[in-house]
């Protein structure tokens, strides 16, 4: 089956006076994807989402959703979009059920259909035992689940989740991630932003790395990993290595970065066979005693670090 673009963003520019928040941003998101949007704080993720939802006016560019231009009056498009904000956006004065029903009512008029959808959303997020409780009585994890229930209750085709697992305990986080994958399995396209690289790696089928308002790289996790130089990182605990020895390691094939701090030797190498064996043989030749040895394939964090030059949480 040929996949179709559900969202197309072309040359999107958004300025806040002298600050360019989005700098010719281009994105294509296909139907059925879980699309991860990765970027450090201030990279333009939220601005991009706000423009996408027509909550913000932009200076230049086009946004097309479901093949139609997205404007504040595109109510047919909006009907098919569900939004889960970073902050919990519910009414404190309403119960869990009333909140879900209220936000469902913004899309669905039919009372009977709404009741059914609300029941389904409650069951989906596992909030059956808390329907009569007010939000302030809920734990952080349950609140997040309520937030998600309010966003997905009308069964949208496209769901935008902006950091939905912030300040959530691991158990609830897993439940939320499983839920997102399940929503995708049920046919929804997901746009997912998160600071947690491992979450993005776990659930996203495609990822865009965004910084300074434009996309630096797009692809699957594997595709992104292949874009960078690092193929393997070897970490060795060893005592008192001198500069001559480190220089020897640097001259080994495929090695492009060596660092030695606090008795830990870190060697970054390009993708090649027998990297680890070669390094260990060299150390044995030089009669170097060493402790624990780790060999790691590149993570999304390495990709991010190499592409943007900074950690995600910088």
């Amino acid at each position: 089956m040929q996949s179709t673009n559900i969202i197309q963003i072309e040359n999107l520019v958004k300025r806040y006076q002298n600050l360019v928040a989005l700098d010719h941003l281009n994105l294509e998101i296909q139907e059925g994807e879980i699309f991860g949007l990765l970027g450090p704080n201030g990279s333009g993720k939220t601005t991009a989402i706000n423009c996408l939802l027509a909550l913000l006016k932009y200076d230049k560019g086009t946004i097309t959703i479901f093949g139609e231009p997205m404007t504040p009056g595109s109510y047919d498009i909006k009907r098919q979009i569900g939004v889960v904000m970073q902050n919990v956006a519910v009414f404190e004065q309403m119960t869990v059920r009333e909140n879900i029903d209220y936000f469902c009512g913004l899309y669905i008029r039919d009372k009977e259909k709404r009741r059914q959808l609300v029941d389904e959303a409650i069951a989906f997020t596992g909030l059956e035992d808390f329907t009569k409780m007010r939000p302030k009585k809920l734990s952080g994890g349950l609140l997040r689940r309520l937030n998600i229930a309010c966003g997905i209750v009308h069964k949208p085709r496209l769901i935008i989740l902006d950091e939905p697992t912030v300040a959530v305990d691991p158990q609830s986080r897993n439940k939320i991630l499983e839920g997102i994958v399940e929503l995708n399995r049920q046919g929804s396209t997901i746009i997912y932003t998160s600071h947690y690289m491992e979450e993005v790696e776990q659930i996203c089928t495609r990822i865009a790395i965004i910084d300074h308002g434009h996309v630096l790289a797009t692809g699957t996790t594997e595709e992104l990993k292949q874009m960078i130089k690092t193929g393997e990182t070897i970490t060795i605990e060893a005592i008192a290595l001198d500069e001559e020895l480190l220089s020897g390691i640097r001259n080994l094939p495929h090695v492009f970065d060596v660092s030695y701090e606090e008795q830990t030797l870190k060697i970054r190498l390009g993708a090649a066979r027998h990297n680890l064996v070669r390094v260990l043989n060299y150390l044995q030749e030089k009669d170097v005693r060493f402790g624990r040895v780790f060999s790691e394939l590149p993570t999304l964090n390495d990709v991010f670090l190499e592409i943007t030059g900074k950690e995600l949480r910088d």
Binding site: L53, K78, M85, A89, E92, Q93, F103, L106, C150
Partner: peptide, 23 residues
């Protein structure tokens, strides 16, 4: 006042602006 504070919550407002009911 209680009602206005509830409806003026920026996040709730944004969620409502994303809905199919015009502002």
């Amino acid at each position: 006042c209680y009602i206005m504070i509830a409806f003026r919550n920026q996040d709730v407002k944004r969620r409502m602006m994303c809905s199919t009911i015009p502002a």
